[in-house]
Simulated scan of single mutants.
Amino acid sequence: MDDQGEIQVNRGFRIEMNSALGPYKGGLRFHPSVNLGILKFLAFEQVFKNALTTLPMGGGKGGSDFDPKGKSDNEVMRFCHSFMCELFRHIGPDTDVPAGDIGVGAREIGFLFGMYKKLRNEFTGVLTGKGLNWGGSLIRPEATGYGSVYFAAEMIATRKESLEGKTCLVSGSGNVAQFTTEKLNELGAKVVTLSDSSGYIYDEKGIDSKKLEYVKVLKNVRRGRVKEYADKYSSAAYTAVDPALDHNPLWNHKADCAFPSATQNEINGKDAQNMVNNGVILV
């Protein structure tokens, strides 16, 4: 039920793909694009991602076509509670352990965990990505973005090079993109792009730590749009999404490295050719 008292109906899913190595493990995604096909693909992919960690985890994925963007905290909470009222019977620490994904951060995980605890009358580690105050892990929010950069650093080291001084294109502006940018800055690289579903910003001077803090407040607290970054910093140019284009112009800038950090299947053939033409040596 929304804040106007109107009943809203969304469809929820949980794909339990494979538990040969351990409990099903994979994120929950809240986004209008969510459907059964996308989640089956992501769950299939998650099986192999988790197996590569060598940890005893299977693969799964879930979510809903609910869009948290523009919703109040109360609306998001009511949806999370409704979602968990069905999901709770299918998950557990030894069965299926969901996590966050697009549209599901610490706020949503907290709402989901609160309802799980109420329904099962137990405090157990059934969800990852929780806040530190209710059983979460240190450095969990940073893990995906940092891991991406560490992997890239090892890749480029095979060429006897480092990320220091490299210009990097980063897509997205959520958890993964934020911490990818943070670690790239720490290693001496310069990040020049970020994006969201409305468009992207290109900042030739680089998105330094001070600017990144602004992005974190903008996206995590105010839940604003990346266009506001360009309004605040004159060095940045904003480009709105153009559905008519057959490529993403974010990848059509001079750079050394590219870090897709928004969603799956971001780069098509035209994007790849644009990156090669612009000098990108690492994705």
Rank of each mutant, 00 (worst) to 15 (best):
T158W: 00
M57T: 00
S235N: 14
G105C: 12
Y202A: 12
A20M: 09
L184W: 05
D67H: 04
K183C: 08
G199C: 09
N268W: 04
F41T: 13
D196T: 11
A152W: 01
R89N: 11
F179K: 00
V191Q: 03
F48C: 02
D94R: 11
V34S: 06
G279S: 08
G125F: 04
N10W: 15
P243L: 10
G12V: 13
G174C: 07
E45R: 11
N265R: 09
S171Q: 11
F44Y: 15
H81P: 00
G100K: 04
W134E: 07
L250P: 02
A272T: 04
K160D: 15
V192Y: 04
K205A: 13
G5Q: 11
G279T: 07
Y24L: 08
E161C: 08
A244G: 10
T124W: 00
R225F: 09
K40M: 14
D2F: 08
K219C: 08
C80P: 09
G27N: 12
P23L: 07
V104W: 07
F13V: 05
M84C: 11
K118T: 14
G172K: 06
K118C: 04
R140D: 01
G188A: 02
K205V: 03
G172I: 06
S235F: 02
G114M: 01
G131Q: 00
N274V: 02
A272V: 03
G27A: 10
F111A: 11
G58Q: 10
S162C: 07
D73M: 10
R29A: 03
S195M: 01
H247S: 14
P68G: 06
L42C: 10
A157F: 05
S82A: 15
P93M: 13
Y116M: 07
K166G: 05
